[in-house]
């Protein structure tokens, strides 16, 4: 078996996750390659979103959640006492399933992350806002109305705004939790193209229940089933000759 050689940005080591008594993830060993799009697929309830939320420690918002094992970010475990969670979340950004622009103006949405991180220089903020909106492909559509409410944008635009908002704080990793599932096909396509452009600067981890999207967009794919990582490989290989029967059955639509 050919060993995949790459720089791993995030590595999980025997990661298990519990919500109270219930075990959601079981001994996950995963190496997320740097500057690539990695997709995590699997049937509903298999733990994909939970896995994603472990990476920026958002799973801690769920009461009675418990982690066993480690998650290494650039080689350092993020689940230790001396890790600044706030700084971690700046470096590992997240885009959610349902676009959640804040009830503020477009400009203030993108500037939000900058302001809470202490940046006051108006010129600097302005520059970063423009750059982020350009990087997320939204600039042309909103440059004349930055002060209007973000709630007036369409679904696809709102999601790109959320991406711009995440980009503004200059993260290294972007976690995307089913970012297109609430959007129409045209917006979905725009965001898929965006992911491919973004991977040059960022490491992208995508959770999706849409296999075809994972196939189109990602470089690597991991298949999660009932909390266990069944297979992880180059996307081409997963979709043309998967090694595990379970993987083959899932992607052929025989269950899930």
């Amino acid at each position: 078996m050919k060993e995949l050689i790459y720089t791993s940005k995030i590595t999980t080591k025997d990661l298990s996750l519990f919500y109270g008594e219930k075990q959601v993830l079981e001994k996950i060993n995963l190496k997320i390659p740097q500057n690539r799009v990695t997709a995590i697929i699997g049937p509903s309830g298999c733990g994909k979103s939970s896995l994603l939320r472990c990476m920026n420690r958002l799973n801690e918002l769920i009461p009675k959640s418990k982690i066993i094992g480690q998650i290494l970010f650039d080689g350092r475990n993020i689940y230790t006492y001396d890790v600044d969670v706030v700084e971690l979340r700046r470096k590992i950004g997240m885009v959610f399933q349902k676009p959640n622009p804040f009830p503020k103006s477009i400009y203030d949405n993108v500037a939000y992350g900058l302001r809470i991180n202490g940046i006051r220089d108006k010129k600097k903020i302005s520059k970063l806002v423009e750059k982020s909106l350009k990087d997320s492909g939204l600039w042309e559509e909103v440059k004349d109305r930055l002060n209007t409410s973000a709630m007036e944008l369409s679904g696809g635009q709102q999601q790109r705004l959320c991406i711009a908002r995440a980009l503004a704080v200059e993260p290294e990793v972007i976690l995307m939790d089913e970012p297109c599932s609430a959007l129409d096909p045209a917006s979905t396509l725009k965001i898929e193209e965006l992911m491919k452009e973004l991977k040059e600067q960022y490491t992208i981890i995508l959770v999706t229940h849409n296999m075809q999207q994972a196939a189109r967009v990602s470089d690597f794919t991991g298949f999660l089933y009932l909390g266990k990582l069944i297979e992880f490989d180059d996307t081409n290989l997963i979709f043309t000759r998967p090694k595990e029967k379970l993987t083959e059955n899932y992607i052929s639509g025989r269950f899930g």
Binding site: R89, R90, G93, F96, N100, F102, G113, I116, C162, V169
Partner: peptide, 23 residues
């Protein structure tokens, strides 16, 4: 208040109070 507003702020690196106060 939808939970997503809180999570959205936290995911950007806000402290809990920041997310409450601003969102």
């Amino acid at each position: 208040v939808p939970q997503s507003y809180r999570e959205g702020a936290l995911a950007l690196g806000a402290t809990k109070w920041q997310s409450i106060y601003s969102n």
